[in-house]
Design a binder for these strands. Sequence first.
DNA 1: AAGTAAAACAACCGCACGGAA
DNA 2: GTTCCGTGCGGTTGTTTTACT
Length: 241
Amino acid sequence: MKTMQDETRKGPWTEQEDILLINFVNLFGDRRWDFIAKVSGLNRTGKSCRLRWVNYLHPGLKRGKMTPQEERLVLELHARWGNRWSRIARKLPGRTDNEIKNYWRTHTRKKAQERKSVVSPSLSSSNCSSSSNITTVNSSSPPGTGDASFYDTGGLEQVASSGKNGEAVQEKGYSMDDIWRDIENTIEPVFDGFSEEGCNFSYPPLASPSWEYCPDMLWSISVEESRMFLPYDDGTMLLTG
DNA sequence: AAGTAAAACAACCGCACGGAA
DNA sequence: GTTCCGTGCGGTTGTTTTACT
């Protein structure tokens, strides 16, 4: 029989969960999601953990509104690759596929509505409800064709945290920046240095040279042992065992 | 100031793929 | 060669925030 604790949690992540996840990702890297989900004590699936990390907790993420350059780049790349969101995201440092997908969705919806109101203004009053599920993907022609220049944006403008969501992560006055600062001060992270094309994120300067050489030791840790890493309430880690 | 619509954001689900057993 | 498991991706939906009337 399943107790409440055995139930896999769903829904919004709490600050505590975030901190826990960040700590464990720092310890074990961002690859073994199932493992992290298990040893962290989070009653979440590995999938859920990964998603939370990739879309929200990753230190390289930008926040706030897309810049005009980014918007143009999205349009350009989508015209070229279609709904290859992850691929498009790789060309937009700090942006996630989810974010781009969401942007595109609202963008196309807006375009569709504009178009509709222009093409058939007489129908707009009687038929506008149908716009809810329209994804006129191909309807938005790429803006101009100055391809190459788009790929070399020379680093996108720093608009992070200036947007309306700069505050979104500051629930209870404890921002992700604060969390990262805490973690930076309390543990030595292990980033496996993976900087494949698929990851444009730039980590904050959190080097951990020592652990990179013997990652296997970490993977062989038992669930019991991993409990020693559970954080305190304030997000710091108990490393002494 | 309140209500409503639209936009933005966050998260889950199902499927596909690749690697290990 | 096959099966199983973990991970990544794209689609979709639910929730929250913002703008407008």
